[in-house]
């Protein structure tokens, strides 16, 4: 529960309110996570600082890479023709979130800061090697998405004093590469992922070999998890299906999903990891042609 509601129109105002409350006010974007957590009594704070009136934080533009404002909704991401063309993994992932009502309100910033290990937008963004801009009363800093997470869960961002304003990445297509996202859930809508994965493949100058690969999976650890051994296996080798099979096997071995009554046994989800990572690699390879 909170006793004050602020709707600043500008970033500076929002930061001033946060400073004034010295940790007792909290940033709220769409509220799709926050309100549910408040209703359950999981969290409480004195004042809500609703940042959705800061209109300049909602955009998807191409300018020295792709830049996405933190208040961009999942609907915006899913419908962006720029993302469809240059980073389909992110557009596809956003289109899978909850339901249309949730996608219309939930934001990319909230998805990252809420730090669920299988957050559907954060998973592809981490594979895209995205960088987050974080602003506080004392200035701005840029942090690679990967470094934003605590290994034990959660992020290093303090939503009571800091605001995530922008996410940027260089689209794989600019380097001749491709991206893909794969997901399995119990139902097609309103169902959190049993497993999800995002992949980025970048070709070497000869176009035959893999220069770089990034594979991110969830929920198989406390935070979105990078399959580094599988990535290493891919790097420097020629694109081919057998190699993708080996990489998917390796990713599956690296994944440490827990047994879960909701999401299925660890053994089942390791098998899923193998299948979904393989399919995503194939899809990303095909995306390179576009």
């Amino acid at each position: 529960m909170f006793h004050k509601y602020y709707r600043p129109k500008h970033l500076a105002e929002a930061l001033a309110v946060l400073s004034e409350y010295e940790g007792r006010a909290r940033v709220m974007a769409g509220g799709t996570d926050l309100i549910v957590q408040l209703n359950k009594g999981d969290i409480s704070f004195e004042a809500a600082v609703d940042i959705t009136n800061i209109k300049e934080l909602r955009y998807i533009i191409e300018e020295d890479g792709i830049k996405i404002g933190a208040l961009t909704t999942h609907t915006d991401l899913a419908q962006s023709s720029l993302l469809r063309q240059k980073a389909p993994s992110l557009a596809d992932a956003a289109g899978e979130v909850g339901s249309l009502q949730i996608r219309n309100v939930g934001t990319v910033g909230g998805n990252i800061v809420n730090a669920q290990p299988a957050a559907d937008a954060a998973i592809p963004l981490m594979a895209l090697d995205a960088v987050a801009t974080i602003v506080s009363a004392s200035g701005a800093r840029q942090v690679a998405l990967e470094m934003l997470y605590h290994p034990g869960g959660g992020t290093i961002l303090d939503p009571c004093s800091e605001i995530l304003t922008e996410i940027t990445f260089r689209p794989p297509s600019d380097m001749g590469g491709g991206s893909a996202f794969g997901r399995l859930s119990k139902r097609k809508a309103l169902s959190l992922p049993v497993f999800n994965a995002a992949v980025v493949l970048l070709p070497a100058a000869d176009d035959k070999n893999i220069m770089d690969a990034r594979i991110v999976m969830g929920p198989v650890a406390r935070i979105p998890f990078r399959a580094r051994e599988a990535e290493n296996l891919l790097r420097g080798n020629a694109f081919n299906e057998d190699l993708f099979h080996d990489a998917a096997d390796t990713a599956s071995r690296e994944a440490k999903p827990r047994d879960s009554l909701f999401r299925g046994s660890s053994a089942y989800r390791k098998k899923l990891a193998q299948v979904i990572v393989y399919r995503s690699l194939i899809k990303a390879w095909k995306d390179m042609g576009c």
Binding site: M28, T32, N39, D50, L100, Q101, N104, V105
Partner: peptide, 24 residues
């Protein structure tokens, strides 16, 4: 936010009013 029974349209967009702060 799980069932949609509370869906209303705000400025043209469907939202779940049960988890939507009124001040929005």
């Amino acid at each position: 936010g799980e069932c949609g029974a509370c869906t209303v349209v705000v400025d043209g967009e469907a939202v779940n009013s049960c988890i939507y702060p009124a001040w929005k």
